[in-house]
Design a protein around this nucleic acid. Structure first.
Lengths: 174, 174
DNA sequence: GTCTATAAGTTGATAGAC
DNA sequence: GTCTATCAACTTATAGAC
């Protein structure tokens, strides 16, 4: 891993910036180096590969999602959806990065982890192993919630949260 | 444009296949040619560029979406969401292709067209120019509906449709 | 219509000097 | 820690023979 250098942090910040602006796949190490005013090999001193850099940026959200699942075992649907909205809102930059190009997940072998989270959330939301109808309603609720975070990132947090969580809860009831 | 050749159709079928299997960005003309047992230059006889090929596959869905919007001007929310689900379900291969890699839209300059459709649908759904809360509820409904089509493409149409549309309608009411 | 051969560019990554 | 120089692999695309 290695201690956080100054340069290392600047690389991470610039990478996040470009991944968000132009998309992960359309951002090469060359672009990142150019914007930083350094050269490509300098990047390799701080990160062992492009994968390593990307993983460093993306994985914290997954760790947070999994910790979140572990905590909320006994919560109501309303508390659960509210807490999920808050996490998604806080990590919305990463969420946009991923939802704008889901093949990033495949590139980093993170698909199973994402599906496991979704399934875990659904299971807690509906209780036990739900039948198809319940899983579909949960998909509308969770998928819809995520979409609002991506579509209204500049609108006031309170307003988005109130309307989005209310809609998700209604969808869940079907 | 040109009349549909036999080879041209086989190229389109194989391209659709690979775009869906491996993703649009991870499918090169080489891959398509290899699976078809022809060479890359042969592709260029039938399509003027990779863009042309991709566009030929993707744009029919947009034309259908826009025709759909024009027809449903006076429909109820329930009819509208049901008809949208049917269209998305019928075109789910294209929808998966696009939602798996939204940068495809950017590549083909189709983002504005997609947003215009979403806005048009929202406007009809809510009537007039809706305030933020209503737009958020419509986003949960339409985004959630789209997600179910992507997540449950092999489940029975009737069951998915019934549960998904019901959930979307509830979300819309908020 | 389809081929061989090739151009011209980009990418991630490494060797080795300073 | 950062540089110059370079590599091998891949991409879209074209010229020209058959």
């Amino acid at each position: 891993m290695g201690r956080p250098t100054d340069t290392r942090d600047r690389i991470l910040a610039t990478a996040r910036e470009l991944f968000l602006e132009k998309g992960v796949r359309d951002t090469s190490l060359q672009h990142i180096a150019d914007r930083l005013g350094i050269t490509k090999p300098a990047l390799y001193y701080h990160f062992s590969s492009r994968d390593d850099l990307l993983r460093t940026i993306v994985t914290p959200m997954f760790e947070e999602l999994e910790a979140f699942l572990a905590e909320q075992a006994g919560a109501t649907a309303e508390e659960l959806l509210g807490a999920y909205f808050d996490l998604a809102w806080r990590r919305r930059d990463t969420l946009v990065m991923i939802l704008s190009d889901l093949s990033v997940l495949h590139e980093l072998d993170l698909i199973a982890r994402m599906l496991a989270f979704r399934e875990g959330l659904t299971t807690i939301l509906m209780g036990g192993a739900p039948e198809l109808g319940a899983r579909i309603r949960a998909t509308v609720a969770v998928g819809g919630l995520s979409d609002t975070v991506v579509m209204f990132p500049r609108e006031p947090y309170e307003q988005v949260r109130q309307a989005a969580v209310a809609a998700a809860i209604m969808a869940l009831r079907g």
